[in-house]
Design a protein around this nucleic acid. Structure first.
Lengths: 215, 215
DNA sequence: ACAATTATTAACCGAACGGTCAACGCCCGT
DNA sequence: ACGGGCGTTGACCGTTCGGTTAATAATTGT
């Protein structure tokens, strides 16, 4: 066990460590892991550069810690808030909580997107986070899809894509949208559209077989 | 006009320049712009490092050139292949050609995703590329959506998200899929699902008003 | 009060970075 | 045969990188 790992356990809530984490979250999201230097982070956090290595062994260790926190929070946010109600109601609740988390943790998606392209060890964490959401969708859709679990994975990645892409492409959507795509009214419009999409998909699942051949 | 810009015009098809472009495409896609050094690129291309600055003024200029090529190719790929047929048929054709391009130009999406997070000038190119695809979707869906152009932008980003996300998350989908998500059979399964989604959405557009309030 | 532990700092390190430059081989028109 | 571009090279430059270290300030247990 390294010094920094031991430090994590004891002094989790240290003020300087928190400032470093916050600064690193922002910078990794803005420019990506490789484009951010430890000097950048320490300067924004207002602490000495060496402190970063005191609390987190390496620059990569800092990212690791950040992703860990986010995945934990994401898993908690997707914990069954109301396991009552119809599949349709629970599906809408799932999408809503997914959207809420994205809006409340803006750097999260950007860091994940960056991590997706650089083949680091962080991908294994992403996998386990994904598995959780997949399980939830499987619970909801598995019983009602025509051939059970075979196609749930398709719906899973489709739902995730519908939610994620809007935030992912927000920096360049301003040419199509009026004003900031992340403004309150535009986020509301997006929410309405997504819930409409969920309903159309669930309608289709109840009346059709997704196994048709089109081309 | 810089030396390298002049060079681009004259000796576009130079063998060494092409080797550099190819190596850079691969590496930028694998690790992202910031994580790749010009030494990495020149080594994979098998040429001297200084040649990179001879043909492209800077490392950023090289990325610029690559994106330029890809956007040109993407625009061409989405050119109206068959403007005949019903909205439904043309919509399926659009999704098909989008999928084709993604499968044929693997580094493209990865480079774009990286560019999306780093606020470089390259974003303006991304915007113009986006506008083209949006115009196409607008032609197809505008006339049949209940309140015209107001919601087309929502469908646009939704369709794009459905197509893109699968490739974007491919590196971590292997835990949910069996085998490589990019294998021929798995790509075929994804295509079928997407065409089914398109049909369900078009069904909904013809019978419903997307303006309902759900929350 | 004081020793021990913890937190913080400035100075420093070798390596790698993007980029420059003078020179060299090579082909080609004359 | 030879002079002039073009393509190519290795050696070099200043800067910045992630990371270390020894010393010091602050806090804590007794």
């Amino acid at each position: 066990m390294s010094k920094a790992e031991a430090r994590e356990g004891k002094k989790e809530g240290n003020a300087s460590a928190e400032k470093i984490l916050q600064a690193a979250k922002e910078l990794f999201a803005e420019r990506g892991f490789a484009a951010v230097s430890v000097r950048d982070i320490s300067e924004r956090a207002g602490v000495n550069k060496a402190l970063l290595f005191y609390y987190f062994d390496t620059k990569a260790g800092l990212l690791h810690r950040i992703l860990e926190q986010y995945y934990q929070a994401h898993a908690a946010a997707l914990a069954p808030p109301a396991s009552e109600g119809s599949t349709r109601v629970r599906m809408h609740a799932l999408v809503t909580s997914y959207l809420d988390f994205m809006e409340d943790h803006h750097p999260y998606l950007q860091i994940v997107q960056h991590e997706l392209q650089s083949n680091t060890e962080g991908l294994s964490m992403l996998r386990s986070g994904m598995r959780l959401l997949f399980t939830r969708v499987e619970e909801l859709l598995g019983p009602i899809t025509s051939d059970g679990h075979l196609h749930v994975r398709q719906f899973y990645i489709s739902f995730a894509g519908l939610v994620i892409t809007y935030f992912n492409y927000a920096p360049v959507l301003d040419v199509i949208w009026e004003g900031d795509p992340l403004s309150a009214s535009n986020r509301r419009e997006r929410r309405q559209h997504l819930h409409w999409m969920v309903d159309r998909i669930l309608d289709g699942l109840q009346t059709c077989n997704p196994d048709q051949d089109i081309g």
